[in-house]
């Protein structure tokens, strides 16, 4: 096997995986930035949108439209979650916020089991998304889903970057994340900012969920759990609350996992998740504020 081609293949894999992590992590970081909430229900936004897409395409809606509608459903779920569960506990201690989101994820996942049953369903990935491209006699292969996830992630993340640095609403979000009271004093509508933040964060999760489902071919009620945990790691490593940090953390994590699976000894591969979390704990000891040092915590 040619090692250069192998490396290129692994880089493609890392970018594809990192893109998914980054898209979930930005949402976690946006919400954390403003509300200081560790949002465990964020992963379920991946699930609600994907189920909506499956349902709509089963009803005969063309796939691209079903995807867009699915993302809208994710965003809507996020807005409803904020309205119904999070707004009443806003300003409560961290633990209360965290537990509320934990309870909400339990409700949403079991609601999905109640409505759609717990068994996996196939995701109607169209053939053009599963098209395989092979180079160098199959040493480098990727599918259209890989290309689509990476490009849509990069484009949408660039779009988000432009939004938070050029629009008044985006600047307002960063302002509110830094100092909620001062943001209220300059006349920003905090409720509106929070709703928009949830809509964007959940929309990104929805998009990530579609791409995740397109790659794995199935959806299930707890499909958001594992990527959510990875996204937490990405967001924390990047500096929880920093959007750029979350993107960086996402791609770093993608690279790390591919490094373990692709280049590490084969016995290590199944321990990938354990290694990631062990490294997170070690990382937090030395840099509790993340790479970007977005917020410093009390150190013991």
């Amino acid at each position: 096997m040619n090692s250069l081609e192998f490396t290129i293949q692994q880089i493609i894999n890392a970018v594809s995986l990192g893109s998914l992590y980054a898209m979930v992590a930005v949402g976690l970081s946006m919400v954390f930035g403003i509300l200081k909430m560790t949002n465990f229900a964020h992963g379920d936004m991946m699930m609600t949108g994907s189920y909506a897409t499956v349902l709509l395409s089963a009803l005969g809606v063309p796939f691209p439209i079903a995807i867009v509608a699915g993302i809208a459903v994710s965003a809507l779920t996020g807005i409803l979650a904020e309205r119904i569960a999070y707004r009443p506990v806003r300003g409560a201690p961290d633990v209360t916020l965290l537990l509320t989101s934990l309870a909400l994820t339990y409700v949403l996942e079991n609601l999905a089991i109640l409505i759609f049953s717990g068994s996996p369903r196939s995701f109607p990935t169209p053939d053009w998304m599963n098209e395989v491209f092979a180079f160098s006699d199959g040493a480098i292969t990727f599918t259209s889903v890989d290309i689509i996830s990476s490009t849509s992630a990069i484009l949408s993340l660039l779009g988000l970057g432009w939004f938070v640095s050029h629009t008044t609403t985006g600047l307002g979000m960063r302002a509110a994340a830094e100092d909620m009271a001062a943001a209220a004093l300059v006349g920003l509508d905090i409720n509106r900012l929070i709703v928009i933040a949830f809509a964007i964060a959940s929309g990104f999760a929805g998009l990530a969920g579609m791409l995740w489902a397109a790659q794995s071919g199935i959806i299930e009620p707890d499909m958001g759990f594992s990527p959510l945990l990875k996204a937490f790691v990405a967001a924390i490593v990047g500096g929880f609350g920093s959007i750029a940090g979350a993107v960086l953390g996402g791609y770093l994590l993608g690279a790390l996992e591919i490094l373990i699976v692709g280049f590490g000894p084969t016995e290590l591969s199944p321990y990938r998740d354990a290694i990631v979390f062990a490294l997170l704990i070690v990382f937090l000891l030395f840099r509790p504020g993340g790479i970007m040092q977005a917020n410093r915590e009390v150190k013991l």
């Binding site: 830094e178 001062a182 004093l185």
Partner: peptide
């Protein structure tokens, strides 16, 4: 209201 301690958005 120009608050005590200035409260600018430091990252902006």
């Amino acid at each position: 209201h120009c608050p005590e301690g200035r409260r600018l958005f430091g990252a902006l």
